[in-house]
Amino acid sequence: KFNKELSVAGREIVTLPNLNDPQKKAFIFSLWDDPSQSANLLAEAKKLNDAQAPK
């Protein structure tokens, strides 16, 4: 279960257009550290992506 959630969340995070590479890497490392938090980490990444969207 975690492997699928981890890969789905990881793929989504790397495609978020408004995150820079260090931010993406930080989220990916957090996913590896605790795969059970993949849904929460993906939600946080999406929030940050939205907040950094060009206005």
Rank of each mutant, 00 (worst) to 15 (best):
K1W: 15
K1N: 12
F2N: 09
F2T: 10
F2D: 10
F2G: 10
F2C: 15
N3D: 14
N3Q: 12
K4A: 13
E5P: 08
L6M: 10
S7K: 09
V8L: 12
V8S: 12
A9K: 05
R11E: 10
E12S: 08
E12R: 07
E12Q: 11
I13E: 02
I13R: 00
V14R: 08
V14T: 08
V14Y: 08
T15R: 13
T15H: 11
T15C: 15
N18S: 02
N18Y: 14
N18R: 01
L19F: 00
L19P: 00
L19V: 01
N20L: 10
D21N: 07
P22K: 14
P22H: 15
P22L: 14
Q23A: 02
Q23F: 02
K24P: 00
K25P: 06
A26W: 13
F27M: 01
F27D: 06
F27Y: 07
I28D: 07
S30E: 12
S30L: 15
S30W: 13
L31H: 01
L31I: 09
L31N: 03
W32S: 05
W32E: 09
D33R: 06
D33P: 00
D34E: 06
D34M: 03
Q37C: 10
Q37W: 04
Q37S: 06
Q37Y: 04
S38Q: 07
S38C: 14
S38E: 12
A39T: 08
A39G: 08
N40D: 09
N40C: 13
N40W: 09
N40M: 12
L41W: 02
L42Q: 03
L42A: 03
L42F: 02
A43N: 08
A43D: 08
E44Q: 09
E44W: 06
E44T: 06
A45K: 00
A45G: 02
A45Q: 00
K46A: 04
K46D: 01
K46R: 13
K46H: 11
K47H: 08
K47Y: 06
L48G: 00
L48K: 04
N49P: 00
D50A: 11
A51Q: 10
A51I: 12
A51K: 10
Q52S: 04
A53D: 08
P54V: 10
P54H: 08
P54D: 08
K55Y: 05
